[in-house]
């Protein structure tokens, strides 16, 4: 349910951010995330940044497998 797009924040202006996914850029709503700064990575869904991404999936995967 919900294709998510990981993307880098390029710029922010009044609740709207320009995000960049591999060179594909679009403006999305960024007002649901506090303290967002250019350079941060966000998960985008239907034109809204819904979460900040705080690491890559390899670091995460290694941590997850570490608990078992």
């Amino acid at each position: 349910m919900c294709v998510g797009l990981p993307a880098r924040v390029v710029s922010i202006n009044e609740g709207t951010a320009i995000i960049d996914a591999n060179g594909a850029k679009r403006s999305v709503a960024s007002q649901l995330i506090d303290d967002l700064e250019p350079g941060d990575y966000v998960m985008v869904h239907a034109g809204v940044a819904i979460a900040k991404i705080n690491s890559d999936d390899e670091t995460e995967g290694n941590e997850i497998l570490g608990i078992i």
Binding site: V3, L5, D20, A21, N22, G23, A24, R26, V44
Partner: peptide, 12 residues
């Protein structure tokens, strides 16, 4: 192309 990949992941 990375850009094509980006657009495709944006639009599924």
């Amino acid at each position: 192309d990375p850009g094509v990949r980006g657009v495709c992941s944006m639009l599924g």
